[in-house]
Amino acid sequence: MASGIAAEAAAPLPATRRRSTRRRFVRRKSWIAFLMALPLIALIGALVVYPAFYSLYLAMLNKGMEHFVGLGNFSFLFRRDLFWMVVKQSVIFAVSAVIFKALIGFVVAHFVHNIPAKGQRKWRGMLLVPWVIPPAMSTLAWFWLFDPSYSAFNWVLSRIGLHGVPWLGDPLWARFSVILVNVWYGAPFFLIMYLAALKSVPEQLYEAAAIDGANWWQKIWYVTLPMMRNIIAITVLFSLIVTFANFDIVRILTNGGPIDQTHVFATWAFQLGIEGGDLPLGACVSLFMFPILGVAAYFILRDINRRGNEA
């Protein structure tokens, strides 16, 4: 120790300054924190930031990816009716699926919440099954259920004397079907989130409300919903993002058909970019999800910070 100090004292001035600078640098906690986070930052940079900017760059190339065309791809898309149809279809698909997922999740969560604790695990497990099966597999099963001639659905309909429905053949029914499968797949996520939220509402608030004169509907409106506001906002946003970007269900059930009527951004981008060989145009389509989700996220998350945890 003493010799160290002696050596330091003996060293020429610039070296001392350099060393003390290094020491000061190491002593600053924020730098150490940054260094420790660096691997993760690098990973995110490589896997998120770089692809994002690359797709932005890609969207501004011509089909052969030889020269820069600026916003040419975008203006080309704006002039096509099919693009606006896909925008409309994506919004209908995502918004209606999320609404039904949230509604069904909310209602079923109440049912499960009221099952005595002993039987609850079993029901919870069973109700989670749609969410646990890989959607590519379960969608194939749905594909068979929707088959016009050999499927269970149309068989049941014919048994009760009704005409079979062209589940995937008619644009309207095809839209209904992809939304139905998406709701079936996604509702358990809402169920489990809302169940957890319900369990965190203190029982005494309901008792206080009961004494204050609230009926069951008023208890839901004035106690349950306000207490669950934040979790509802976050789940809806999360599900909106995932549903907007949905690929597998539409791809397997209808592949965008009939006549491109069920395409969403992801499937259309895939068709244009990978199957159609126009990568820049595909990238351009997929980029459109970003501003739409950005606006949704702003409105949904706006109040969460302000509300915070009121309990």
């Binding site: 005494q204 008792e207 206080a208 004494i211 204050d212 004169g213 004035y222 106690v223 306000p226 509300r307």
Partner: peptide, 27 residues
Amino acid sequence: PKDRDIAMVFQNYALYPHMTVHENMSF
């Protein structure tokens, strides 16, 4: 309970956390 015309004060108060004091009292 709502038709018994009673009022109760709970051990942990059971105030509605998302309502102001005024809203709690007037609920």
